[in-house]
């Protein structure tokens, strides 16, 4: 059996768990079951869920925020200021969420079964011009931030501006925006740090959630041995991913900032608390309202996630 896997961009920290999964499955089945990974050849990233639903390929990665209406249930993990503190914790939250019947049903509309998350650390801003000393300095600052993070930035007076990720570098260099929010690996690969002057270390407004899914029918059609080989490899692939992100990507991040003389801005705890106060609750309330209207048990999903986070700390 050969499965086609639709990813995008190029091989990077963000795709290492899928690469590892392919390696493990190949090993365990003696080459009988292979995953053929394509970077952008099979679909556009925003259409990966469509491709799964059609049956054009059997496995794919996408980000929930690309199309919230396609997968409203898992956008709960993109709410600002959830307080997720590690990649391991993010994996635990995601795996628990994926088992919830409402979530299974939501993705079931696409004939998709959630396999594993691609945990990303908290987003932070890289910016040009004078570094902000306090949150008040964000007033009037044009920033590229989408979804929940954009909403959060609005609450401190920043002006979110939309553009595709590939235009961010140009917009930053030319002064159209003053700051951009990404996870560290994306700040490096989209080049925002090349001319950036400062970076916020602890704004931590949230992250994006990008699961890997499989076609439900294709999963059912696998022989028991092959299915077992796949499902039993998920934990090891995720462990490999987390190790790679923490020890390779994050290890490169600090030196990359220092090499370019980028100022690291850390806000006082009280300020961050005030930011969270202003941004988190309204965003959660509107998420719950909106998704209850869709017929999702939104309050229950929200309580489950926040409850797990509270229980951890």
């Amino acid at each position: 059996t050969e499965w086609n896997v639709s990813l995008w961009g190029k091989r990077r920290a963000f795709t290492e768990h899928v690469e590892k999964l392919a390696e493990l499955v190949d090993q365990k089945t003696g080459g009988e079951f292979t995953l053929s990974i394509s970077y952008g050849g099979l679909s556009k990233n925003r259409e990966n869920l469509d491709g799964i639903s059609i049956g054009a390929f059997e496995m794919a990665q996408f980000c929930a925020g690309y199309h919230r209406d396609k997968n409203p249930s898992i956008t709960v993990l993109e709410l600002p200021f959830l307080g997720v503190s590690s990649l391991e914790q993010e994996v635990d939250l995601a795996m628990a969420l994926y088992k919830h019947p409402a979530v299974e049903k939501d993705l079931g509309r696409w004939n998709a079964t959630l396999l594993m998350p691609s945990p990303l650390p908290q987003y932070n801003l890289v910016g040009v011009g004078d570094a902000p000393a306090t949150l008040a300095d964000f007033a009037g600052l044009t920033v590229r931030a989408t979804g929940g993070i954009g909403k959060a930035m609005e609450t401190v007076g920043a002006v979110p501006t939309s553009m595709s990720a590939t235009e961010v570098r140009q917009a930053l260099d030319s002064g159209v925006i003053k700051a951009a929010s990404f996870a560290p690996h994306a700040h490096m690969s989209f080049g925002t740090i090349e001319n950036g002057k400062w970076w916020t270390t602890n704004l931590n407004p949230g992250s994006v959630h990008c699961p890997v899914v499989v076609n439900t029918d294709a999963l059912a059609d696998l022989s028991d041995a092959h299915r077992d080989a796949l499902l039993s490899s998920v934990d090891e692939a995720l462990a490999y991913y987390i190790d790679f992100y923490n020890n390779k990507t994050m290890a490169a991040w600090g030196p990359a900032l220092e090499e370019r003389g980028i100022e690291q801005v850390t806000f006082a705890d009280a300020e961050i608390a005030a930011f969270k106060e202003a941004a988190a609750a309204p965003a959660a309330a509107s998420w719950i309202e909106e998704n209850t209207a869709r017929g999702l048990p939104a309050q229950e999903l929200y309580d489950m996630i926040t409850g797990m986070i509270a229980g951890d700390s």
Partner: peptide, 19 residues
């Protein structure tokens, strides 16, 4: 069916680009 639906994604998804 799979082929037609796969091809049918392309026109909209490829032309709706800012670039």
């Amino acid at each position: 069916t799979v082929a037609v639906k796969t091809a049918g994604q392309v026109p909209h998804s490829k032309v709706s680009s800012q670039a």
